[in-house]
Design a protein around this nucleic acid. Structure first.
Lengths: 347, 347
DNA sequence: GTGAAAGCGCTAACAT
DNA sequence: ATGTTAGCGCTTTCAC
């Protein structure tokens, strides 16, 4: 664990530190020098000190992806998309789990300077402090979500309104008329926009009644809890549950099962985000793909572009949603065959 | 985005940089100086450059949690536990998604030096290169998993052997005799140890037959794929499926459902890791808790302890597993009542 | 209590 | 092609 510096390598190789640096970085140097420096570095087990290098260069060659809740698969999906873009550049990506808004503000303020050269930020809640911090950030921040123009950050948005509209229209097209919306906290960006989108879409559909309940979190457990409450009180009164995201949707699916409600016969259920969970759940969950991977990819590209050209005009991209219809809203033709098991023959 | 340095603040406050630094860091300084410096810093929107600070101090005040697949909920759970410990210290935590072994080796080699002051590493695969990199790392690395003594790293292990034994004994106790094990890649640490543990436990159980298949990944999709193959070919011949982790287990659950097999009547299913998914799936999944949160917590504490005292003896902690019995292996007394839906009365 | 100055490890002029 | 040297922004002796 003894620190071995460039000076040590230079001494060992019998050349100056400048030549050593050049040799190591592939700049002008005679093959012989390169060889000797390489050997010396290897023998000594030399690794360049990133701190010193960054200080000198004025950049860290690192990017951050800051996300409130990495436990939500949709953010993991975004992360993978970002990672793919970043891997193709010569930056490294670090992930930062921010938790609440205060922590996010903290992060934007402090991490930015000298920690990373740029950041893709997916905030759950946006406060004025956060906006101010982003506006004042010494390195570019690309925001996944809404941000006032005054902040001057590149943004990539999902079209939640259109997404909710797709969901509601699909349900109405399937003959559903009494909808219930289970939303996460409305003081979050997704909560707010999905709420607005649902309200508008429902209001625009003649003959449709809509109720909305809010749960504490965008999680399976909260979705389950909310659905149990909702369905126990008004099972006969609603014929579709629109969940604000897939996690809540999975919770609703389980609640329906526990209450003996058939999906989609008795009740249709939809999610948002089109995560893997929606594809693999039983029944599979109809969900609207808000383009998480696409948004992640674009955000990463915008970040790289801004770093390359700091004065370029601000971009604001919106990704269109796509509805993925699955078994939780539409009865499929065939159910799979039953297999013989434990020796008994089954129908 | 103009860079404002300590010198700017000093000039503005009308004191030396030394005094400015001291005032900002709460060292000796007259109240008056502190006041003026604070004001100047605020006016200028000064944030200390972490790079320069780190170079001078020789530490970054940052820790890394490097994990192969943050998409697996069990690693998220670990992350949260680590985060809790780190938050209580005055270090910051960054997460690094490593992907394959090569990337992990890269990370250990390069990130360590001047990027973070220490690292909790949860590698999926361990190669000699990785061991060498860890042994040579200039900052402490705590490994979640196995590591030869020669590497000299603190390690925190799960007791997979005992875990698999708990699972097998439970199944045997429930009258199951024909077990199938669906494992992930055996060249991974968890794959290898869960394989060994299962084999041993099955062999130690008289009258029990066991088969094993391997799927490409510890994922729901792969678990589903493997289970379909397995169950279609030998549904009548096995009465329990032991999945190498919860994700695979969930996949098996879905496959059983698609094949019309009743769980647990026709077939019992178990997982490993006791993630939230196991608790919320329908039926809920019996799973063995390998103590992920506990291991994360301990790893973080070991790291902090080693940073504080670099020469302390190497620690090697093993966390005991706990079996969580749920509906996928044991028929529960009551099924919930069916509710009236869509106006029809249901049984 | 305060300021001048050294120096963390590295890269990039600049001179040779 | 190579060496000398300044300096990135900060903290910390050291002298006052």
């Amino acid at each position: 664990m003894a620190r071995v510096t460039l000076i040590d390598v230079a001494r060992r190789a019998g050349v100056s530190v400048a030549s050593t640096s050049r040799a190591l970085n592939g700049l002008v140097a005679s093959p012989e020098t390169v060889e000797r420096v390489r050997a010396a570095a290897a023998e000594l087990g030399y690794t360049a000190d990133a701190t010193a290098r960054s200080l000198k260069l004025g950049r860290t060659q690192q990017l951050a992806y800051a996300v409130a809740d990495i436990g939500n698969p949709v953010y993991v999906e975004m992360m993978r998309a970002i990672e793919r873009v970043v891997a193709a550049s010569d930056y490294r990506l670090v992930i930062s789990s921010t938790g609440d808004v205060e922590a996010t503000v903290d992060l934007v303020q402090s991490l930015s300077r000298g920690f990373v050269d740029g950041m893709v930020l997916a905030p759950l809640r946006v406060t004025e402090e956060l906006e101010a911090a982003i506006a004042a950030a010494p390195v570019p921040v690309v925001v996944l979500g809404r941000m006032p123009d005054t902040v001057g950050a590149d943004t990539v948005k999902a079209d939640s309104a259109r997404g909710m509209e797709l969901v509601v229209r699909h349900l109405v097209g399937e003959g559903r008329r009494r909808l219930a919306f289970i939303n996460g906290p409305v003081d979050t960006t997704p909560g707010q926009f999905r709420h607005d989108g649902f309200r508008r879409a429902a209001a625009a559909s003649p003959g449709v009644t809509a109720i909305e309940i809010t749960v504490a979190d965008f999680t399976i457990a909260e979705g389950y809890r909310g659905a149990m409450e909702l369905l126990e009180n008004s099972a006969g009164e609603i014929d579709a549950v629109v969940a604000a995201n897939d996690l809540i949707g999975i919770g609703v699916l389980h609640a329906a099962d526990d209450l003996g409600l058939r999906v989609p016969e008795d009740i249709a259920i939809t999610g948002v985000d089109d995560t893997e969970l929606a594809q693999v759940s039983r029944p599979s969950l109809t969900s609207v793909d808000l383009g998480a991977a696409e948004r992640g990819r674009i955000a990463a590209e915008l970040l790289l572009a801004r770093i390359a050209e700091p004065e370029r005009p601000t971009h604001m991209v919106t990704v269109a949603p796509v509805l993925r219809v699955r078994d939780s809203t539409v009865q499929r033709a065939s159910r799979p065959i039953r297999l013989a098991a434990r020796g008994e023959a089954l129908a």
